[in-house]
Amino acid sequence: MSDSPLRPSSLINTVYGAFLRRLGGWISIADLITLMGELDVDGPAVRSAISRLKKRGVLEPERRGATGYRLSPAAHPVFDEGDRRIFASLEPADLADGWAMAVFSVPESERSHRYQLRTRLTWLGFGNIAPGVWLAPGRLLDDARAMLERLGLGDYVHLFAAAEYAAFSDLPDTVSSWWDFPAIQTQYAAFTDAYAPVAAHLAAGPDPDPAQAFRHYVPLLTQWRRLPYLDPGLPSELLPADWNAVAARQVFQQLHSVLLEPSLRHVRDVTGLAAPA
């Protein structure tokens, strides 16, 4: 695991996103406390994190013979978008696919929306190429449109699909000023340092039992799912020669393929939940 502690709310988000969505989207608070205890998160911390997630509209209370929480309807598209980014965008974009461009202008009286736009576009992987002008690989266009619609920010933004960069500078040199490559590589290095030894250990031994897989997988996915949002997934032609995302992706893919299914079995065993018919 990473040396920096992972927040209980982030771990709970991972449990819901990776497992509970497959099992109906609900869990009793008692079972959630049991699962989180295996990740060294105590009951009071779980309840505090649940309270924050409820205030943010991620979870809703629901009693099904026991007190529990389910994913709110509004949270489902956010998790679906996360799946596309975390799992479907592991490979770099193709330069031939073009670009998505967002241009916005927000009145000073509504500058909170300007901050929200900057934050959300950055989180999606857009780079800032000029005041109010943001760029990302073309495959992020649909996610950008969905995000703007969901947050009610579409009135401030014009989205464009651009085919190619035409002039006047060397594009690989230029994009390095639009995205913070050193910061992204630092995060990838931290992930690889933390989990490459885990991958090597598991590869050398028998398959992990379900409980052990769960204890590895939830922190792994919690740390990993930040990275595809920091990394826009630029075409390989535009990346530094020493770009270290490739090694990190290989570690993640190896562990994901080994740990996901036994982790899901463990959650089913603890909760008694089954996938909806």
Rank of each mutant, 00 (worst) to 15 (best):
P276E: 07
R64G: 08
L20T: 14
V157L: 03
A88P: 14
R226V: 12
I50D: 04
P73Y: 10
Q116V: 07
L255D: 00
I33L: 15
M1R: 12
D3K: 03
A161N: 04
N13M: 13
Y69T: 05
K54R: 03
Y195F: 14
D97T: 06
A189C: 09
L238K: 01
S105W: 10
D94I: 03
S28F: 02
D3I: 08
F191T: 10
P182Q: 05
G154V: 01
F181T: 03
E110Q: 06
L273E: 08
Q254A: 11
A100Y: 07
P262L: 06
Q187H: 08
L238Q: 11
P210H: 04
L95A: 10
L230I: 10
V258M: 15
G25Y: 03
L59R: 03
T119L: 01
A199S: 05
P262M: 04
L140P: 09
A18M: 12
G24S: 05
P172C: 04
G132K: 14
P131H: 07
V246W: 01
R22E: 14
G57I: 03
P228I: 12
A75M: 03
R111P: 06
Y195N: 08
D170I: 09
A49N: 15
G57A: 09
L23I: 11
L159S: 00
R56E: 05
R249G: 06
Y217P: 01
V78I: 15
G24F: 08
T119K: 05
L121D: 02
I27R: 15
V46R: 13
Y115I: 07
S4N: 12
M36L: 15
P232I: 13
A102K: 01
V198N: 10
H76K: 05
W178E: 15
P206R: 01
H158N: 00
S169E: 12
T122I: 06
G125Q: 08
W179I: 06
R7C: 04
L202N: 06
I29K: 00
R63V: 07
Y217Q: 02
D207V: 06
A245W: 02
M101L: 13
A102G: 08
R21L: 11
W99Q: 06
A211S: 10
S4V: 08
G233L: 02
P276G: 08
Q185L: 10
D143F: 09
L151H: 15
A66W: 01
T67Y: 05
R215H: 11
G65E: 08
D155C: 14
A211W: 00
V258Q: 10
P61K: 04
R226A: 12
Q253A: 13
V246C: 03
R47F: 08
S176R: 12
G233A: 13
D142S: 03
E110D: 06
A144S: 04
E91L: 09
G154Q: 01
H256D: 05
D94T: 01
L259W: 15
A167F: 05
F160G: 09
L95W: 01
Q212R: 14
W178F: 15
P276Y: 12
A30N: 14
H158P: 02
S169M: 15
D142C: 01
D94Q: 07
L39K: 02
D143V: 13
S257M: 11
A45L: 11
R22H: 11
A75C: 02
S4F: 09
P197W: 04
